[in-house]
Design a protein around this nucleic acid. Structure first.
Lengths: 224, 224
DNA sequence: TAGATTGTTAATCGATTAACAATC
DNA sequence: TAGATTGTTAATCGATTAACAATC
């Protein structure tokens, strides 16, 4: 299953709705109209109503939507009424940064395990966890109830790491390596590649500067 | 300018084309048909021809596209015939991980500067750079020719960091904090939020497991 | 010339949005 | 009842794709 393909219109917007709604809750508003919410998230009001209807959320004509109900249902849809323990494979700089990062645990994704193939790293304490060998993954998934794996290995190690996660029963993988991985059909993979993100930025930068001379330094040869 | 809106169909696929083409080069193939390339990148052949035509690349009827030419032109379109020096704002775990990460420099985005507001971090050596105060950003952008800024501060520091980059003349920002930032119209921002990526994974995980009992641990209260 | 493949037109598909009857 | 706002239909828009004439 390829997430990007299946995703449909709604899912990517749910976190945005949630962020705006949380602010409204802190202000104490009880209800909100699709019209006003649409302004906050910069979408069309009809799109907002569509999205909410598709989640099975209904409002009250003439009044709007109950904000707390909205938040509850969106959290439900996103699976945020659960805690999803995460196992990070790869205890390099990025893996260790993730294990130290509160932003994941705060949103229901605590890093409960950190593994690596490098014997030199095994046993090292990082944040709240200790680096363990990759061979332990299967046991860790079972005992910790981990549902999600994050790959922060080198490109070379990515496939092997993914295989280990899949063998351990993990069905959701966030791949932070530059390497595309191959997994069975029933496993979901999302890939975030920072260099690709920068490429996209530079694409627009270049396009914007097109006529003017670019501020980048010419690179020797590319296509050889 | 919102990148997601403007992006059009092509840009997000260019890195994929490039990856497949690089492999073909290493195998020594001289040309490729849109049909074959479309299989490699899992797209429709007409879409491939569309994309290439939109970049001004033409092939030869009956033969296909010259692979080296293709690679050169796609690199050109992505701005990869330039080196884009990057300044990272925020020398926490993630910022330091980026400064140590070869994957960016390898693809033309060397981290040339790392700054932080925390006096305790100033002067620390990280990878090839030394942490400097945020106040130096403007001078650094000029002297290093930095075109892209990456935010790895805390949520609280994100807006201030973005303001400093914008004031220094940076027009492309990759925001890795969970905080949305406000910038002038002429500045491009891309946001990558790992917790959001995990949310999307868990959304599908949950949907897949819908009927069956979820494997996540129930969370106490969400909507209060 | 016969076969292959491009470049592009027209058809299709899916998502967004305007509009409005239903109804609080 | 009058005003507001939902829920949904039909119109619109934009991207993908099939199909095919052009041409190597």
């Amino acid at each position: 299953m390829s997430l990007q393909d299946v995703s449909g219109p709604t899912i990517g917007r749910l976190p945005r709705y949630l962020a705006s709604l949380m602010e409204l809750i802190s202000v104490g508003e009880p209800t909100i109209s699709s019209d006003r919410l649409s302004e906050l998230v910069d979408l069309n009001a009809a799109t907002v109503r569509r999205d909410l209807a598709s989640l099975g959320i209904s409002g009250t004509r003439g009044v709007g939507y109950d904000i707390k109900h909205l938040v509850f249902e969106i959290n439900q849809a996103l699976g945020l009424n659960h805690v999803w323990p995460v196992i990070v494979v790869g205890a390099g700089n990025l893996g260790r940064a993730l294990a130290n990062y509160d932003g994941l645990a705060d949103r229901g994704f605590p890093v409960c395990g950190l593994v690596d193939v490098d014997p030199a790293l095994i046993g090292k304490a990082v944040g709240a966890v200790t680096v363990r060998p990759v061979d332990d993954v299967s046991e860790m998934v079972d005992s910790l109830g981990a549902a999600v794996g994050v790959l922060t290995t080198s490109s070379e190690g990515a496939q092997e790491a993914a295989d280990a996660l899949v063998a351990a029963g993990v069905r959701s993988i966030l791949n932070l390596t530059p390497q595309a991985i191959v997994v069975p059909e029933e496993v979901d993979v999302r890939r975030v590649d920072l260099a690709t993100e920068l490429q996209i930025l530079s694409f627009y930068h270049q396009r914007r500067a097109s006529a003017a001379s670019g501020s980048g330094v010419p690179l020797s040869e590319v296509a050889s």
